[in-house]
Computed example of a mutant assay.
Amino acid sequence: MSVESNTVNTVLGPVPAEELGVVSVHEALLSVVPGAEHAFDITIDRAEIFEVLAAKLKDFHEHGGGTIVDSTGMFHGRDVPLYATLSRTSGVHIVASTGQGPDAMLGGYFLTPQTNPPTPWPADRFADLFAREVTDGMVVPRVERRGGAGIVATSATREGMTATDESLLRGAARAALTTGVAVSFRHGSDAVQELDVVLDEKLEAGRVAVGGLDREDAVAAGAPLAVARRGAYAVLDHVGTEDGAHISDAERAALAAQLVRAGHGDRVLLSCGATGVAKGHPGNDVPYSHLLTTFVPLLEAQGLSDEDTRRILVDNPRDLLSGR
C-alpha cells in the first residue's frame, strides 16, 4: 500500500496536497537526544511542552504558515499523539517523518553484531522499517502504530559518509520508491556524492530534498547549484541562523535569488531548522515564523516576485510532499 497520488500524510491523516499552504520543510518540534529522557536532570513535562509548541505554531499560522514538516525521524523525541493535538489546536498541518541517522546517532541494535567488526543493517532492512511507518503507521510506544509518516528523513555524517550512512540513504530511497513519499536528507561532507547514492536507487531526483545547503562549506563547494542541476531540491534550512558555520540571511536571500535567476526556482526550498523544544542538547530557538516575517522581505529586496516566493514556499514543497 502506498500514499495516494496528490495527497500528503499528516498526523491527522491524509490531506490533499493543495491544502498545505506555506510549508517549512525542515523543522523540529520536540527534539530529544536518545536516552536523555532517562537523565536525572531532564524533565519531560508534556503539558509544558504542549504549551510552548502550541504558541510557536499559532504564531507561525498567524503569519501565514500552513504546514510544518517535522524532519527529526523516529527516535529523537517524535510524539505523534502530541503532534496530532497540536495540529488540531493551532490549525497548522504537521507532517511527521520516519527515518533516522546519521551513523553516530544509531544504537547497536541497528548493527549486525555477529560480524567483526559489526556491520550496519543492509539497506533493505532500513527500507522495510521506514516503509512500514508510512503504510502501517508510525510506531508509538505502548500504543503500537498511529498515522503514516509523510516523508523519509535521514542524515549523513558530517565528517564523511560511512557504510551505515550509505545503507540508510539507500534504505530511505527504497522506502520512498515502494510507498510514494519523498526523501529528505541533511548532507554530511559531500552533498552531491550523497545525492548520487540516493539516485543510484532509481528514485527520481524530484523526489529528493537535500538539506544543509546554506552551510558555509556547502556554498563554497557550489553544492546548492549542483544539487538543483541534478533535479533535486536544494534546501536552505537554517534561515535565521547566523553562527559562522552558515551563511547569513542576507547571503541566503542572494543565493536563493541566484538559483531562481539560473532557472532553478522550482528546485529551491526554505526552512529555519528551528527546534520547538529541545531536551539534552541546545535548541535552535528561531521562531518558525521568522521565515515569513523577516526572510521573505529579504527575498523581495533581491528582486524576487510574489510568484517566485509562492513557488518556493507553496508550490515546491507541495510537489515534493505529494504522494506518487
Rank of each mutant, 00 (worst) to 15 (best):
V139N: 05
A123N: 05
I42C: 07
R88F: 05
L269G: 05
G265P: 00
G160N: 04
H61R: 15
L111D: 05
R267Q: 09
A245P: 01
L213G: 06
R311Y: 03
L169K: 01
R46G: 04
L111K: 13
F40C: 06
S87P: 03
A123W: 03
V92I: 15
H281T: 12
E216Q: 14
D196N: 14
S71P: 00
V208W: 00
V197F: 01
H246F: 04
G222N: 02
L299N: 07
T67N: 11
V69K: 07
H290N: 08
H61D: 05
S5R: 14
S271A: 15
D45E: 05
G171A: 12
T7G: 07
D285H: 10
N284T: 15
F185P: 00
L299G: 07
D79N: 14
T162G: 06
L168E: 01
I68Q: 11
A253F: 06
G276H: 11
H63S: 12
P102S: 13
D217F: 04
H76D: 02
L168R: 02
L259S: 04
S322G: 12
F295E: 06
R170I: 10
G212P: 02
F126T: 09
G171N: 09
D266C: 10
N116A: 13
A127G: 08
Y83K: 13
G107D: 14
T178G: 07
I42N: 08
E48K: 12
A228S: 03
S90F: 02
P118T: 12
R78G: 04
G147I: 07
H187Y: 07
A36W: 01
R311I: 12
V239F: 02
V134P: 00
G66V: 12
G91N: 11
T119A: 14
D45A: 11
G73T: 04
A257Y: 02
A218E: 04
V32E: 09
A123F: 08
T72Q: 15
L269F: 04
A218R: 02
V181W: 00
V260P: 02
T293Q: 09
H76V: 14
A131H: 05
L298G: 02
N9T: 05
V277Q: 05
Y288A: 07
V92D: 01
G276N: 13
Q114Y: 07
V33E: 11
D217I: 14
T7V: 10
P117K: 14
V8F: 02
A205W: 02
T115W: 06
A55G: 11
G65V: 05
V11Q: 02
D59V: 08
G108I: 14
